[in-house]
Amino acid sequence: MTARGTGGRTLGDTADTSSRSGPASALIPVLTVTISLLGLCLLWSLAANAWPSRAFPGPGQVWQVLLREAASGDLFYHLGATLGRVAAAYVVAMIVGSVIGILLGSHRGADRFFSPWVILFLNIPALVVIVLAYIWFGLNEVAAIGAVAVNKIPNVVVTMREGARALDPRYAEMAAIYRFGPLERVRHILLPQLQPYLAAASRSGIALIWKIVLVVELLGRSNGVGFQIYLYFQLFDVAAILAYTLAFVAVMLVIELLLVQPVERHATRWRRRPA
């Protein structure tokens, strides 16, 4: 689901062309998604009725648990804890990974030297990093978030290094001639060129990070969705496990729809009106 590539419209005037496709056409994808999800629920419900078991609850039961956990406030407490860790790890990984990636992408010698390190870190299993972080730094929040970030940083480095290699020197030369300041260069020359790479790194980043955060919580935290899933695993309470999982997936989808996609549309608005 990328926001890009909706181009191909012809130019009329300076007015926003996206307002021309009315609200009716915007509803069709929403409708399709809703029907598709309802279909999945129906299938699930039929299957749960065909093989009734405590280990395979139907959507109704999961919904009941969800309501119960929401009413007690537990759901929001644990969702919030996990979300906070996802956000912190995401910010750390994006900043550190981007800086390293841009440096490697613009210094060939450094890149040749550090490339094996990047490959090494790319291939260390997430679990190993988490376990080592807890052993070395203790069962605390910094170790947890750091471990998640370290798992993600090599991916960001690789993507941003690609972006830095693709930078067009003509823009930097123009900026030099017209004496852009350092901040202006970052804002108007560097970031817009890196934007597609930042978007790619963000996208794969969030998906990866929240899955790793659950493992971190399971191994060494006393709150969060991962902790709850571990708890209900010991109780063999599949309905609760599914309730927490689906709630968190829903939160991540809402973030994607309300935050990531609008930001990306804003950043790529200049692409969508070709001459």
Partner: peptide, 25 residues
């Protein structure tokens, strides 16, 4: 004391409007 240049390629920043391109310089 500044210099200005018009290259073979216009070298405008594609992500900024015409006016922003001029003002940024």
């Amino acid at each position: 004391n500044r210099v200005a240049a018009v290259f073979q390629e216009p070298t405008l920043l594609p992500w900024r409007t015409v006016e922003q391109n001029v003002r940024l310089a």
